[in-house]
Design a protein around this nucleic acid. Sequence first.
DNA 1: TGTATTATAATACGACGGTATGAAAAAGGA
DNA 2: TCCTTTTTCATACCGTCGTATTATAATACA
Lengths: 201, 201
Amino acid sequence: MPKQVDHDERRRHIAEAVLRIAGRDGLDGARLRDVAVEAGMSLGSVQHYFASKDEMLRYVVHYLGEHVTERIVAGMCAPAVASVPPVRSFLLSMASEMLPLDARRRAERRAGQAFTALAVGVPELMEDLGEGDRWLRERVAELIVRGQRDGELRAGLDPRLESAVLLSMIDGLGSELLLGVRDPEEALAAVRYHLNRLAPD
Amino acid sequence: MPKQVDHDERRRHIAEAVLRIAGRDGLDGARLRDVAVEAGMSLGSVQHYFASKDEMLRYVVHYLGEHVTERIVAGMCAPAVASVPPVRSFLLSMASEMLPLDARRRAERRAGQAFTALAVGVPELMEDLGEGDRWLRERVAELIVRGQRDGELRAGLDPRLESAVLLSMIDGLGSELLLGVRDPEEALAAVRYHLNRLAPD
DNA sequence: TGTATTATAATACGACGGTATGAAAAAGGA
DNA sequence: TCCTTTTTCATACCGTCGTATTATAATACA
């Protein structure tokens, strides 16, 4: 029997390389040869783990979708340890995690937007990217309901629509931050301002 | 003296072709040869009006930036003729115009996002795309101030931050609509819901 | 230790796409 | 009418990039 290599570990390693390149130079800059260099292997090896570039990109889309939601959830759970956390602090943590406020998240978001552009019109990819979105929306709606039960949020709010408003706003702020038409302080201020209005008088 | 042709008219004609293609197949689908076919001319002619593909794309970014804001403004002014229009109806019209609710606007937005992805990290392009954004933000802030003066909007609102929240939300809803993770009715409902909360009790 | 099978790598191929070139066509002015 | 300059077009060139091919190295099992 031959050499044993964890195939999926190699694929994740390559996916990380793709994400680094896409975050730095855009998805167009992710040529197979560059991916190989970034991953520290040869072009042939990359080909060994992905039959085609398309298959590789599909894998990366899936990989990204999983990890983004995972990281957001981690960010939301982080402040939970500090005593009893208000729902608004959860949501603020979530927003901070989602917004491209540092180099890493900027790269991640840029890669994400590149894939989003790629996915438009491709049902399979759109499904992968939309999955986490729907899941997150429900979580936020649940959180808002809980906030209302605990008296942290106004009773009159529509959880479903509030979830849509908040997540859309964060999404939009993210795009604007990446494009440089909005500065980070203002983005965070907008989120805090919005969350404040959700509190009872 | 030779044949006289309106140079800028030709360039706009080509730009329209590029936008149609980018809206239909993405910006990657806008090969020079395809642009020529879409514009109903030969590759050589396209080259005659643009020294390079890069120059062409820069022109299209500029062209798009001008026309998008122009169309949004037209959308905002449209309901103004009907008696005295509440500020909220202005803003709703603006949102409706900005959201990709039909094929035309979907194509326009897709092209816009493709160019946005292209522009990240290129200061010149970012400037072109950010210009209209800043202008629009100020207009919305002014509108909110006017709404407050007229008693249409709550007095406690921060016009600058409200402008940021509203425009970011519309931007985010637009992305989500394009990706198909949000349906048009819900997007409009979210906008209406949000605008409603801005009204006095 | 030998061998079979996988992993890694180097190189070659072929297509695609931006660019360059040169020629033909068109049209206003002498 | 002829000339000059612009416009239009066809075609050739050449680099790039995805893919295919082939060879070499590595390793688990007999």
